[in-house]
């Protein structure tokens, strides 16, 4: 039997009518617990779609406040939200869309000290950060704790998506072993980002989360998808597990969490 109310059956009827999802899949969504790191360009569409889809418990961690320059792409926030903590603005929007879900709000930065306790409460993590220290921290923690992770990155007109079953499939370090040298890769604030590109990549991340929860289709495991908006092209690359991977390889050298140094103090998780 499904533990779905009449209200839920009506609200999610377009899901339930999909034979691949059905009541069973919607029940799985209701029972799922997803942590979204960052409520920025990627986090916005991820949070909106997961909330609308009826994911029962959604955590959002982000220490930043809404800035007017965010509004060109961070569509979960409105003009009236400027200067509000992003987690509060995001949570309010999500509850307006779907009051039937639970939203856990963490107005803080994700760090080496708080990530493991946080992960205990969630099954899947979505990466919507805009800095490499946190990106590698999330990857390593998800491998160590065997959590699902849906990676996403954006810059200018390009995006990247990769789904990871921690400890089972290729991880971010299997492809990008170490962060690039400090100062070499510009941030969105420096290089710019076409707002809708964040929507494309974030929506694909949300799609992957819904697939992983419901078991529908083939998640983007052991594959990496690059998106080029200028040519409107997707390029898929096989990303098999790397035996030399420092965190999930045969002889891992990273057995404790590393927190790489930020190269500027103003950069915060989730500012993508």
């Amino acid at each position: 039997m499904f533990d779905l109310t009449d209200e839920e059956i009506l609200r999610y009827s377009r899901h339930i009518i999909l034979s691949e999802v059905g009541g069973t899949g919607q029940q799985k969504l209701k029972e799922a617990r997803v942590l979204v790191v960052g409520a920025g360009g990627l986090g916005s569409p991820v949070l909106l779609y997961l909330a609308a889809a009826g994911v029962g418990r959604i955590g959002v961690i982000e220490d930043d406040v809404v800035d007017v320059t965010n509004l060109q792409r961070q569509v979960i926030h409105a003009t009236a939200d400027v200067d509000k903590p992003k987690v509060h603005s995001a949570s309010e929007t999500m509850k307006q869309i779907n009051p039937l879900i639970e939203v856990d709000v963490y107005h803080e930065r994700l760090t080496r000290d708080n990530i493991f306790p946080l992960l205990e409460n969630y099954d899947i993590v979505v990466d919507g950060v805009d800095n490499f220290p946190t990106r590698y921290l999330i990857n390593d923690a998800c491998v160590m704790k065997k959590k699902f992770l849906v990676e996403g990155g954006i810059l200018r007109f390009m995006g990247l998506i990769m789904s990871i079953n921690g400890g089972e499939t290729a991880c971010y370090r299997c492809v990008f072993e170490e962060p690039p040298p400090p100062g070499t890769v510009p941030s969105c604030a420096e290089a710019g980002i076409l707002g809708a590109v964040a929507g494309v990549v974030g929506t694909l991340q949300a799609t992957e989360v819904l697939k992983i929860i419901t078991g529908v289709g083939e998640p983007l495991f052991n594959r990496l998808l690059q998106f080029d908006a200028e040519g409107l092209r997707f390029h898929e690359v096989n990303a098999r597990r790397n035996p030399k991977c420092p965190v999930c390889g045969e002889n891992p050298t990273i057995t404790e969490l590393i927190e790489y140094a930020y190269t500027c103090e103003t950069q915060a998780p989730g500012s993508s």
């Binding site: 490499f132 990247l160 990008f176 690039p180 890769v185 969105c188 604030a189 690359v237």
Partner: peptide
């Protein structure tokens, strides 16, 4: 394979 969604501030 491009590094994306991160990056350092200009140094």
């Amino acid at each position: 394979l491009y590094f994306m969604g991160g990056g350092a501030c200009s140094t």
